[in-house]
Design a protein around this nucleic acid. Structure first.
Lengths: 103, 103
DNA sequence: CGTACCGTTCGATCTGCATCGAACATTCTC
DNA sequence: GAGAATGTTCGATGCAGATCGAACGGTACG
C-alpha cells in the first residue's frame, strides 16, 4: 500500500498547476492518465503518449505532477501506479480537467 | 476595431494557452486585466501588479498573450489598449478565467 | 542467494525563455 | 518642425528547467 506523500490540494496554488501542465510531455502524460481513468503504471501511460524519454526523466515529470497535486502515486511491488486526483481536482479546480481534454 | 492582428481562438491549442499563463508575470498581468474588466493601457495594468519590468519585456509578454488568444490589442494614439477576450474565451475554454481568479 | 526489473537520485549538459538596453517608429503637443 | 511619450524590435545575456546516463535501492522470482 504505502502511498507516496502528496500535498493537500488546498495548499497548491493554481500557478503551480499551470506550470505543471505547461510542459508538453507532462500534458500528454496527464491526458493518457485521464484516458486510462484509473490506477495505471506510469511507464505504460507514457508508452500511450508515443513520447520516448528516459526513465529518469519520467520519474522527474511524475514527481512534478505529484507535487502539483495532479496525480497520486501508490507503490505496488516493484511498480508505481499513478492516477489523476479526480474528485479533489474537481472540487478545487472545477473545469480544469475538462479544459485539457481533447478539443 | 482591433488593429493589431490576433489569432482565431479555434486555432489556438490549449497547450499554448497554458504556456502563456504559466509565466508568473503574465498570470499577474492577466489577473490585472480581469480586475479592470475593460480596455486598459498595458503599462497601467502592469503597475497594478506591482511587478517592475522594462517596457521591452512588457511588450514581449503582451505579444505572447495576444498570440495565445488571451488578449486583444487596440491602438489609440501613442498607446496600446488591451483587454481580455472574454466572450470568445468563455466559448472556447469555458471555465478558464474562473480558474485563474483568486481562490 | 543471485538476478532481473522497476524506479529514484544525482551530477552534468543543453536548450529555451525571460530580461535588459539601445535603437527605431509613431503619434501627440506646442 | 522639435521634443516628449509610448511602444516595438533586435541582439546579448543569464538562468531555470528538461534531458540524459550512471549509480543505487527495493522487490519479485527463479
Amino acid at each position: 500500500m504505502s502511498d507516496v506523500p502528496e500535498p493537500a490540494l488546498e495548499a497548491v496554488p493554481i500557478d503551480v498547476v499551470l506550470a505543471a501542465l505547461a510542459d508538453p510531455v507532462r500534458l500528454r502524460f496527464v491526458r493518457a492518465l485521464d484516458a486510462a481513468g484509473d490506477w495505471v503504471c506510469g511507464s505504460d501511460a507514457l508508452r500511450e503518449t508515443g513520447v520516448t524519454i528516459g526513465k529518469s526523466t519520467l520519474s522527474y515529470h511524475v514527481k512534478a505532477l505529484r507535487e502539483a497535486g495532479l496525480i497520486r502515486t501508490r507503490v505496488q511491488g516493484t511498480r508505481r501506479l499513478v492516477t489523476l486526483r479526480y474528485e479533489e481536482l474537481g472540487q478545487r479546480f472545477p473545469g480544469l480537467l475538462d479544459l485539457i481534454r481533447d478539443r
